[in-house]
């Protein structure tokens, strides 16, 4: 579909991928319980660099300290989860694979709730959660390694590891103090971008950025993942190694996202399918598209989550409410699934 696209297609593709998140950013900066007009948004942004521009203190703080870190977090998490979902779908050649197929979400959640139980502050919580997410996937791969290693063994051992860790999460919930810890554990598990700060964002951003850059550089080779084992080995590329690098990058990106804002469902499933539908199956186009579409999607959903009602909605509820009907619409239009 895309190999022979001409120059003008390429320009439109790049413009679209840049325009979408920029427009979503602008929209999200304006909208909320306190509405900021578009000129005020620009004035607040510029006033940081030029002291001559005057703007109300409230608008300045809303934009710089409240909304911007949150929007950036939404973009980073949306991009990371979409790329991870895309990769897992391709690696397992399974349209139902999601970022937590290998149990990463269970591991990260356990790390986080354990930290809440132990009363850790935000940054250590993030690190512990990230560590446990990676540990879960490592255990999954270790469990699946052996004589008859195949893709379905890995998926199966991922399911086992995922439910093991969610049992551990339940155990922590069971022992938690019901007045304070349990509500904050439950709230964390539902996912929220509320706690975004620049420093936590920076810690989470580095592993995500590194993973996505590696995946982007490997974008042509990633296409081999979707061929059958026999076909891809005849290309002469070391497939087990490529697959392992892809799994590592996707895991690091997912664990890092979950450690920042809890579990955000659906993004990693819907956005890659949406991108495949628009751009075909070539990872050269899919990786940038997932970064842009995934980020935009989560910015919009998070804006809705914090503006629809006076109390903020947990983001997973909204992604599911938006995601499920949208998914059904896509599925019916395409007439069934295949990759």
């Amino acid at each position: 579909m895309m190999t022979t696209k001409n120059g003008s297609w390429k320009i439109r593709y790049i413009l679209l991928l840049i325009a979408l998140p920029v427009l979503a950013l602008l929209f999200s900066l304006c909208v909320g319980r306190y509405v900021v007009s578009v000129p005020d948004v620009f004035r607040s942004i510029l006033s940081r660099f030029n002291e001559n521009i005057e703007v109300s203190k409230l608008a300045y703080i809303t934009i710089w300290n409240v909304r911007l870190p949150r929007i950036l977090l939404a973009f980073v998490v949306g991009s990371a989860l979409s790329c991870a979902g895309l990769l897992f779908q391709s690696i397992f050649r399974n349209p139902l694979a999601t970022p937590d197929t290998l149990g990463v979400a269970g591991g990260s959640s356990f790390g986080a709730v354990l930290s809440i139980l132990l009363g850790f502050s935000l940054i250590p919580l993030q690190l512990v959660s990230f560590g446990f997410g990676c540990l879960a996937v490592f255990l999954t791969i270790l469990a699946a390694k052996g004589k008859n290693q195949s893709m379905s063994t890995i998926i199966l051992s991922g399911i086992i590891m995922g439910s093991l860790f969610s049992a551990l999460v339940s155990l922590v919930k069971f022992t938690a103090d019901q007045e304070q810890q349990l509500p904050s554990i439950t709230y964390w598990l539902m996912g929220s971008l509320q706690s975004a700060t620049y420093s936590s964002l920076l810690i989470g951003l580095i592993p995500i950025a590194v993973s996505i850059i590696i995946l982007f550089l490997l974008r042509w080779r990633l296409n081999l993942l979707m061929l059958s084992e026999e076909e891809s080995c005849s290309s002469g590329v070391n497939m087990p190694r490529l697959r392992m690098v892809a799994i590592l990058c996707a895991t690091v990106a997912t664990a890092s996202s979950i450690s920042m804002c809890g579990q955000v469902g659906w993004v990693g499933l819907i956005v890659p399918h949406m991108c495949r539908m628009v751009f075909g199956n070539d990872h050269r186009h899919l990786i940038p598209a997932c970064v842009s579409f995934g980020g935009t999607f989560l910015i919009i959903v998070d804006t809705l989550a914090r503006s629809i009602s006076a109390a903020e909605l947990p983001i997973s509820i909204l992604t599911a409410i938006i995601g499920a009907p949208f998914f059904i619409f896509l599925m019916r239009r395409k007439g069934g699934w295949n990759l």
């Binding site: 579909m1 895309m2 190999t3 022979t4 050649r93 296409n223 979707m226 061929l227 076909e231 075909g280 199956n281 070539d282 295949n338 990759l339």
Partner: peptide
């Protein structure tokens, strides 16, 4: 072939 085009 994962619905690639012939050329891809």
């Amino acid at each position: 072939g994962g619905s690639y085009t012939v050329l891809q």
